[in-house]
Simulated assay, not measured.
Amino acid sequence: MRNYLFKRLLISIPTLIAISVVIFTILAIAPGDPMAEFASNPSITEEVKENIRKALGLDQPVYIRYFKWSLAFIQGDMGYSFTSKSPVFGLILQRLPTTLWIVGLAYFFSLLIAFPLGIVSAIKRYSAADQLVTTFSFFGISLPPFFTGLLLIIIFSVQLNWLPFIYNSTLEVNDWASFIEEIKQSIMPIAVLAFYQAALLMRFIRSSILEELNQDYVRTARAKGLSGFWVLMIHILRNAMIPVVTLIALDIPKIFTGALITEQVFRVPGIGALLIDSIYKNDTPVVMAITFIYAILIVVFNLIADLTYGWLDPRVRL
């Protein structure tokens, strides 16, 4: 297992370096000038603009800027935002709790929903329960989150007036009443994300278990007298989890980056909204930091998934 981990690390490190080069190069040559916000200000002369450009390091060649950025990033310095002049790390930390609260809870609830329903749907194939779960999953996959979000806003905010349709970022939870308000304003974005993610996971879990049900080892286990439940728990579930682990490993980093569309619909001040705003404003340091952190998380959780494969199926380590 140690050699297997070492091999995966040897692949992961060059992958991250290549990703950082691609991200930095694309954003460096992308159209748009970070100094555009000063263009309409007559009080800022060309000399001042040039001094600001030098202070931001924009007058240097791309490769020098890349090496300076990468060395600073390794040391924990993600630079300063072009628009707010604040440290990028501080901006991310400011938005991170909201993103973890909304997207993290949504993913947690989606796992609680998807696993039991996906297993029941596979075991009770073609039954009424299977048809109900399959219909639910098809609706969840087919309906885009922005449509589901707008639908919930129309029903629960406009028609029934039960829930607020705009997330109040200034709300401070310091008593029971404010905690209830926080719950109320979080229900709809969490429901939208959990509905979509649970539907996707259910399809994968159901398909993975169905592929294993007709394998020879399952028939052998049943011939030995094992009941359906124990056959599933001891034999099928462990093998069926390999493709599901891949999907979960790729989805968990989204908890950090947030839900871009859902955060825009409900005005949730998460990292996804910060990324969209930074793209509009050509705030390159913020975009690079969020994008590269997401890439790091993808590589790390892929590594975790590979190690999980080795535990689920020892043949992978060979």
Score class of each variant (00 low, 15 high):
residue 129 A to S: 12
residue 194 A to R: 06
residue 162 W to S: 03
residue 140 G to C: 12
residue 296 I to V: 12
residue 72 A to S: 10
residue 67 F to D: 00
residue 158 V to K: 08
residue 88 V to D: 01
residue 84 S to H: 09
residue 127 S to C: 06
residue 68 K to C: 02
residue 151 L to E: 14
residue 130 D to W: 13
residue 254 K to S: 08
residue 2 R to Y: 08
residue 107 Y to V: 15
residue 14 P to E: 00
residue 53 R to A: 13
residue 97 P to G: 05
residue 184 K to E: 14
residue 77 D to G: 12
residue 188 M to Y: 08
residue 174 N to Q: 11
residue 78 M to N: 03
residue 212 E to H: 02
residue 218 V to A: 07
residue 194 A to C: 11
residue 124 K to V: 10
residue 21 V to E: 00
residue 121 S to T: 10
residue 313 D to Q: 14
residue 285 P to Y: 02
residue 116 P to F: 02
residue 140 G to Q: 11
residue 46 E to M: 04
residue 133 V to R: 11
residue 58 L to N: 12
residue 284 T to P: 00
residue 274 L to N: 14
residue 318 L to M: 12
residue 142 S to C: 11
residue 289 A to M: 03
residue 142 S to F: 07
residue 83 T to L: 01
residue 7 K to C: 01
residue 80 Y to D: 12
residue 248 I to E: 01
residue 296 I to A: 05
residue 248 I to F: 13
residue 24 F to R: 15
residue 54 K to S: 11
residue 268 V to I: 06
residue 79 G to D: 04
residue 265 V to N: 07
residue 310 G to K: 04
residue 313 D to N: 13
residue 166 I to H: 11
residue 236 I to E: 01
residue 288 M to L: 13
residue 26 I to N: 05
residue 253 P to Q: 07
residue 186 S to Q: 10
residue 70 S to K: 06
residue 111 L to G: 08
residue 36 A to M: 07
residue 294 Y to E: 01
residue 295 A to C: 03
residue 146 F to D: 05
residue 10 L to A: 14
residue 267 R to C: 09
residue 47 E to Y: 09
residue 261 I to R: 13
residue 302 N to I: 10
residue 126 Y to P: 00
residue 193 L to H: 04
residue 25 T to D: 00
residue 119 I to T: 12
residue 316 V to H: 07
residue 98 T to C: 08
residue 61 P to N: 11
residue 167 Y to T: 11
residue 310 G to A: 15
residue 252 I to W: 09
residue 170 T to F: 05
residue 183 I to T: 12
residue 156 F to V: 03
residue 117 L to H: 08
residue 174 N to F: 11
residue 141 I to F: 05
residue 55 A to N: 12
residue 153 I to K: 14
residue 192 V to G: 14
residue 141 I to D: 02
residue 15 T to E: 00
residue 74 I to F: 13
residue 286 V to M: 06
residue 190 I to V: 15
residue 317 R to C: 09
residue 112 L to F: 15
residue 287 V to R: 03
residue 177 A to P: 00
residue 101 W to L: 04
residue 187 I to Q: 06
